[in-house]
Design a protein around this nucleic acid. Sequence first.
DNA 1: TTGAAAGCGCTAACAC
DNA 2: GTGTTAGCGCTTTCAA
Lengths: 337, 337
Amino acid sequence: MSPTLHDVALVAGVSYRTVSNVINEHPHVRATTRDRVNAAIALVGYRPNYAARMLRLGRTDIIRLALPELDQPHFSGFASRVIEEANAQGLVVLTEQTHDSRPGEFASLAATGRLATDGLLIYPALIEPGDLNRILEHASIVLLGQNLVDDRVDQVTLRDVEGAEAATEHLLMLGHRHIAVIGADAPLHPGASVLRLEGYRNALARHGLDFDPTLVASVDSWRRRDGAEGVRRLLESGAGFSAVFAFNDTLALGVSYELQAQGRKVPADVSVVGFDNIDDAQFASPPLTTVDPGWGELARIAVETLVERMAHPDAPTRLLQSDARLVERESTARVPV
Amino acid sequence: MSPTLHDVALVAGVSYRTVSNVINEHPHVRATTRDRVNAAIALVGYRPNYAARMLRLGRTDIIRLALPELDQPHFSGFASRVIEEANAQGLVVLTEQTHDSRPGEFASLAATGRLATDGLLIYPALIEPGDLNRILEHASIVLLGQNLVDDRVDQVTLRDVEGAEAATEHLLMLGHRHIAVIGADAPLHPGASVLRLEGYRNALARHGLDFDPTLVASVDSWRRRDGAEGVRRLLESGAGFSAVFAFNDTLALGVSYELQAQGRKVPADVSVVGFDNIDDAQFASPPLTTVDPGWGELARIAVETLVERMAHPDAPTRLLQSDARLVERESTARVPV
DNA sequence: TTGAAAGCGCTAACAC
DNA sequence: GTGTTAGCGCTTTCAA
């Protein structure tokens, strides 16, 4: 058994209470006593039992982060920043993967609160408002991403629509009139795929262009292979396009790869624009034009919001968003004449 | 205050003990009693207090995973798998980043054990044997990666030397005689950069070739920009080479990008081989030949080893390794004549 | 400034 | 099969 406060007190020749005071840096301890206690702590190798402290304080200083998949660049980058932000606030992060499944997400939600007052940051894919009912009363939750409008919960989201508008607008400005879309109807990204499509259509409409469904490739997921497959299908269908808007960078890199594999030059023959501004985008060949939706800012805001929610469970809920901006690189060019 | 076992017992009209039996699925509970208790649990909205349970059981079912950086493909892929393996064992994972700094790693080590008997998986960069002394007695630790030979601790590592030999051997078999190396002396990867260089030299020696230090590029880190910079320096130095072995895939993708940006064709002019087999490698242009060091296997072994260590603190320590194999793709070809 | 002691919610040894 | 109860290690109220 590892030593307890009691053992330390015995060795130091003081009371239980005094040792606790020293550990918690309470002010009213004489310096000599403090030194004696610290010496005793070192001597017996005392380390506090955090489970006992948690029980006593009703507070764990652990938050939970539930993402669909850690093994995707935009999510791992986000997780990395969340961990940093949380640590800065004295919190540690328990990471979970929902694998885009309803049961997975639900398990996360249901387990929330098991560590007393700790909070949950969850990036929902398949959660619906009804799922939240039983959870909300006993847990601090912040929803990430979009996909759910429910003013009983704090939400911290990207500006998907505005970002997609900016991407499309950029291509339109370059003279493109037939812009393919890769990444629609992704079952694992229901919110984002709808909103980014909406942004695309908005931009088209603003330029008086009709929406052409034959230029839209649906995909299973948003990985490279899906991007490659999507654009291949589009090419085979004979649909004519001079530019592609892929709903995330990973898709876009797959698209760019496949186009070049099929002998189309990027951007000379086809322009490609992505979404997320992952680290890899700038070192792709060619470097990828993309939308930076502000993942870093999102992480900061998310942790801040959760911390405030834990501190004030009854404060009004909020919807906060990070800022999106276009990052021009070399995968986009004027439409070929 | 949220309801406790006591509240449930009151509502169900049974004792404290019986409720606990139901929750922990003890066998000796009559079905009707169980139903009544479950109804009461649902009614009052009872959820177990895990801090209390941890305190009572002296066990948290939380393990800690400390990696240099989550935002690197090989680490995030590894973390993702560790989380899955741990979940399968009924454990959850607290993720931390050491940022390759001695203080960061040390903080992780020092904090270990604060959650009672939980264990720590740590990928050490700058830890030395002496750092472990004070920790070992009260914590279950498994060291990941290489970088430390210390038989007081379980270690689960990649086969860096063998992997690097395979990569170099592959290039030698293709007729290359001037093989550049990118990634040496990386301060953040002290173990891996030494071992992979060792593998490279072994393969060279086996073919009777001298080691040429002017073909070795040292780098600050193992990100794309470092790969790009490294190969640029080498080109500027006028050193002649027909192939590049980069110490990881991210470096290799940076190398491949830079070579092509400078008008050298890959693999027609220069072959490139990487290390890690990250997801991106197969969709790069050209798809990257690389070494798959078995990250997935590593995750499985690591969790298994930690679980066994937690169960048997006094069992003899072990050194386990995953298997490395070469994955041939299109970034390597016979030496140009 | 320090000591004594209650009690956080739970599990399980012990009774019946 | 169910009830009673000690005690896990800590923080903190109350007293001295």
